Simulated scan of single mutants.
Amino acid sequence: MDRTAALPPHAFTLDEASAAGFNARTVQRLAADGRLERLAHGLYQRPETATYDTDLYSAATRAPDATLCLTSALAHHALIDAIPARIGLALPRGTRRPATAGTISWHLFDAETFTVGRTTTQITGTSAVVGLYSAERSIVDAFRLRGVVGYETGIEALRTWLRRRGSTPAALLSVARALPRAQGPLREALTYLT
Rank of each mutant, 00 (worst) to 15 (best):
H76L: 10
H77E: 07
A78F: 10
L79C: 10
I80A: 15
D81S: 14
A82Q: 15
I83V: 15
I83P: 07
P84D: 08
P84L: 01
P84W: 08
A85H: 09
R86G: 13
L89A: 09
L89K: 14
L89Y: 05
A90Y: 04
A90Q: 05
A90E: 05
P92W: 00
P92L: 02
T95F: 02
R96A: 04
P98G: 00
P98S: 00
A99I: 06
A99W: 02
A99E: 01
T100G: 03
A101L: 09
I104A: 06
I104T: 06
I104D: 11
S105A: 10
W106P: 11
W106E: 03
F109V: 07
F109A: 02
F109I: 07
D110L: 06
D110E: 04
T113C: 07
T113H: 03
T115L: 06
V116F: 00
R118H: 03
R118N: 05
T119C: 05
T119A: 08
T120E: 14
T121S: 08
Q122P: 13
Q122C: 13
Q122W: 00
I123Y: 02
G125F: 00
T126H: 03
S127W: 03
S127T: 13
A128K: 03
V130Q: 09
G131V: 01
G131Y: 01
G131D: 03
L132W: 04
Y133G: 04
Y133S: 05
S134K: 11
